[in-house]
Design a protein around this nucleic acid. Structure first.
Lengths: 321, 321
DNA sequence: GCACATCGTGATCATATGATCGACGAAAAC
DNA sequence: GTTTTCGTCGATCATATGATCACGATGTGC
C-alpha cells in the first residue's frame, strides 16, 4: 500500500474499499479466529502496531460492532441516562416483563444490588414499604453471613423485619419500637423523646446505606392498605401538591417535602437526616409511581434508583424536553 | 464437531437469569464503556479474574457477539464473482485460515449473516449437517430474542436442535419427528403421511429462509459418520454421477437431482419445495466440497452461499474458462 | 463416615495490547 | 527552495489480559 493512498483516503467517515477489505480481514482474524495481533501482522505483512491501529479505527468507525444478545442490553442505555439526567450515583433498570409481580422483581434486583455492595459489618438502614420488605427477605441470609447490622429509619418496621432477624444475634437489629404514624402529634413527640428511640434514630444516622421505597399518592398505596392513612387524607395531600412519599414524608413534584400535619405524627427520621446517609437506595416501579420517582430523583432525595424498564422510559420521557 | 463438545455447549446454553444480567452488565461495561476488567471488578465487586472468565463465557455462549459491519464479509473480489457467475443473491467469503475448524468458522459467518437478515417473528427452516448445527447454536439467543420460529426441512434434526430450543416456548419449534432416512420406502411413505409430519412440512414451505449444508460424496461425509448411509452406497451414488447432496438429496454436476432409491427413503422436503423458499442459504467449505458447492450453485439450488476463500477460488477456477 | 472427583476461586506470571514519543516523509504555506 | 504542518510509522514501555497452578468448598459414591 502506498502511503499517499492512505492520505488521500483519510476521512474519518469513509475509507478506501481496499482498506475496508483489509480491515474486515484483520477484524475477522482477531475476533472470530482468535489470532493475536502479532499473528495477523505476520500473516498479512503488517506490523503489529498497525494491526492494533486498524482494529482501533474499525471500532471507532463502527465497522466492528459488539452486540450483547440479551434482554438486559436495552436497559443499560436507560440506566446511563437516568444517572446523567438526575445525577444519580447509580441506576438499575430491569427488563420489561408482563408476567410476574413487579415488586418481587424489583426486590430481587435490589437484594442483588445490595449483596454486591454491602461489606462485612456495615450498617443498613431500612425504610418502610412492600418492596423493602421483599428485599430484606431475600437478603436475610447474606445479612447474617456478613454480620450486617440493621436499623430502622421509621417506626412500623418491626412487623415485617422479625422474620428477617430470626436466628441472628438480636444486638445487630435495632428497631424503633413504635408504629410508623400515631394519632396525635403529642404522642409522636413523646415517643421520639424516649431514650431507646433516640438511640436507634441516632444510630440510623450513622448507617452506610439506606434502603427505602417510594410511594405514590394513589388509593392503592401501601400506607392506605395498612391503615396508616386514609383515602381522604391522600386526597388532601394530593391537593397540596404531593406526588409521592419516602418513609412517610410527602413531597411535591420537585422532591421538596411538604408541610403537612401528617408529618408531625410520624415516628422516624426526617429528610435532612436521610440525606445525610451516604447512599440512599430506592427500589420502586410501576405506572402509578412514575411521578413520585421522578420527583424524588429531581430533588436529589436518592442516590441509587432501582426500577423497571417501562417506568424508566416514562420517567425519562417527561424530562427529555 | 464431536458429540461431547455439543453436549458441553448445550449445558452452557442454560444459565440463571441473575447470571445473565451480571454477564450482560460486565459485557456492556467492557465493550461499550471501554472500562478495563479491573475497573469493572471494583465497580461490581468482583475479582478481576472473575470478570475475565465471565467475558470468556459470554463469548462462548454467544451472548456477546462481534459483528463485522461491512457490506462484504471480507473478500469482495471473490464474492462479486461468485454472485455474478452463478447468479447468487449474495455470497460471503471468509478469509483463509489454516488453523481452526473450518465448519466452526463458517457457522460463525452464517450466524452473523442470519442475524443481520432475520426480522422479528420470521420463520427459519433448517436442514441437516454439522455446519447447520453450529450455526443454530450460535444463533440460539438471537432466535429466542427475536421470536424466530424454527422448522425442520427433514427428519433427524431433533437430535441437535433441542439444545437450541431449550428455554423457548416449544410452539415456535416445529420438528419432523423422524430420522432423516428410514430403511424402507414404505416406512418413509407412512411417516410422510402422518398428520403431524404433513403439517410440519407444509409449514416449512412457508418459511422465509432455509439454512442448509452441502455434503460431499466422500467417505468423510456426515451422512456416513452418523450412520445414515454407508460407504458402499456412496460409491454407487458416485458412479451414477452424484457430486454432492443438500438435505439428503444427491445431485449431479449440474445440480440436477438424481433418481436414486435412497431418495425415496428420505423423510423431508424435495428440491422443488426447497426452491420455493425465497432465500436458500448454504454454508459449506473445504476442498472436498468444491465440486458439490459448484454444482449446487450452477443448478440454482441456492440463493446465498457462505464459504471460505480457498474454496471460493477453487470453485471459480473451474468456471473461469 | 471417608475418600474422591469436580468445580469455583484467587495468586502468579508470561504474554498481548495500546499509550507515548521521536523520527520520517509528504503536502502546503511562505 | 525552504519551512511549516500534518499525519503515519515503529520503538519502547506500562498496563491489561488470560493461562496455569494450587487451594478450598462442595457434592458424590463407596
Amino acid at each position: 500500500m502506498k502511503v499517499s493512498d492512505v492520505n488521500e483516503a483519510y476521512d474519518e467517515l469513509a475509507f478506501e474499499p481496499h482498506e475496508e477489505e483489509l480491515l474486515s480481514r484483520v477484524a475477522w482474524h482477531y475476533y472470530h479466529d482468535g489470532l493475536t495481533q502479532s499473528e495477523i501482522g505476520e500473516r498479512l505483512n503488517l506490523s503489529r502496531i498497525k494491526v492494533s491501529r486498524m482494529l482501533d479505527r474499525g471500532r471507532r468507525m463502527g465497522l466492528i460492532h459488539v452486540h450483547i444478545n440479551s434482554s438486559y442490553g436495552g436497559c443499560f442505555a436507560l440506566e446511563a441516562r437516568l444517572q446523567e439526567i438526575y445525577g444519580l450515583d447509580e441506576a438499575r433498570v430491569i427488563p420489561a416483563q408482563e408476567t410476574g409481580n413487579i415488586n418481587d422483581r424489583l426486590a430481587e434486583a435490589a437484594s442483588q444490588y445490595l449483596m454486591g455492595r454491602l461489606k462485612d459489618q456495615e450498617m443498613l438502614a431500612v425504610g418502610w414499604g412492600a418492596t423493602v420488605m421483599g428485599t430484606l427477605q431475600r437478603l436475610a441470609r447474606t445479612l447474617s453471613y456478613r454480620d450486617i447490622s440493621l436499623v430502622s429509619l421509621t417506626g412500623g418496621v418491626s412487623a415485617y423485619i422479625e422474620g428477617v432477624a430470626s436466628g441472628r444475634s438480636s444486638q445487630n437489629v435495632h428497631l424503633i419500637p413504635a408504629p410508623l404514624v400515631v394519632s396525635q402529634e403529642s404522642i409522636a413527640e413523646a415517643i421520639r423523646a424516649e431514650r431507646h428511640v433516640v438511640e436507634v434514630m441516632s444510630m440510623a444516622r450513622t448507617a452506610n446505606y439506606a434502603l427505602v421505597g417510594i410511594g405514590a399518592v394513589a388509593d392503592e398505596a401501601t400506607l392506605i392498605a395498612s391503615g396508616y392513612a386514609s383515602r381522604s387524607q391522600f386526597e388532601i395531600f394530593r391537593r397540596q401538591g404531593a406526588v409521592g412519599d419516602i418513609i412517610g414524608i410527602f413531597y411535591d413534584q420537585n422532591g421538596v417535602p411538604l408541610d403537612l400535619p401528617f408529618h408531625k405524627m410520624l415516628v422516624g427520621l426526617d429528610f435532612d437526616a436521610l440525606s445525610a446517609i451516604p447512599q440512599v437506595i430506592a427500589a420502586a416501579g410501576g405506572p402509578r409511581k412514575v411521578e413520585a420517582i421522578r420527583a424524588a430523583a429531581r430533588g436529589g432525595r436518592i442516590n441509587v434508583l432501582i426500577t423497571d424498564e417501562p417506568t424508566a422510559e416514562a420517567i425519562l420521557e417527561k424530562d427529555q424536553a
